[in-house]
């Protein structure tokens, strides 16, 4: 067991962890932050995406011990301070960018990283960036649309008749 200390969604936490404890397990089992999901075991689906020191990473493919001293962000820390949905979350709701909701936390975390790096991404850039986030419900149409909308782009003509 190793002691790790990190900041999660702005709050400092310290826990004794096993060496083989993944961040997904640390967040879900130790901190009871169950918004970060596990959808695969080959580091591909992105349901577990979180931010570590400001970077988008797969929570299922990083050990808690590797995050000692890190700033960690999860879906539970994304809403505005007053609890209202942030711009990306709101765009996902406005444009029906989610159905079952399971991939959604990872999608929102990835979208946040994308817009930080590229504040006005094109459709193609969004689709490329989401390569590591699999959604089985939406067919991606409304996810891409929501991210474009969240970046302030006019989406009213997308797939218009």
């Amino acid at each position: 067991m190793t002691k790790v200390t990190m900041t999660v969604n702005g709050k400092s936490v310290s826990k004794e962890v096993r060496g083989n404890m993944l961040m997904t397990e640390f967040l879900r089992d130790e901190l009871h932050l169950t918004g970060t999901h596990v959808g695969c075991d080959t580091s591909q689906c992105g349901a577990c995406n979180i931010h570590v020191n400001g970077e988008n990473v797969k929570g299922c493919t990083i050990f808690a011990a590797e995050c000692d001293g890190a700033e960690v962000g999860t879906i539970e820390g994304q809403a505005n301070a007053d609890g209202s949905l942030n711009a990306i979350q709101q765009a996902f709701q406005d444009h029906h960018g989610l159905q079952c909701g399971f991939c959604t936390p990872g999608m929102v975390m990835s979208a946040a990283s994308l817009l930080k790096e590229n504040p006005k991404p094109t459709e193609a850039e969004i689709r490329h960036y989401l390569e590591g986030n699999i959604c089985r419900c939406t067919g991606y149409h409304n996810i891409v649309k929501a991210i474009m909308a969240a970046s302030g782009q006019d989406v009213s003509s997308i797939a218009a008749e």
Binding site: T34, G35, V38, E76, P105, V108
Partner: peptide, 18 residues
């Protein structure tokens, strides 16, 4: 707009593994 979205978008959904 879907009312269920708020819990899913904030990590508050409750799936069986939760």
């Amino acid at each position: 707009k879907r009312r269920e979205d708020v819990r899913f978008l904030t990590g508050a959904g409750q799936y069986t593994d939760d």
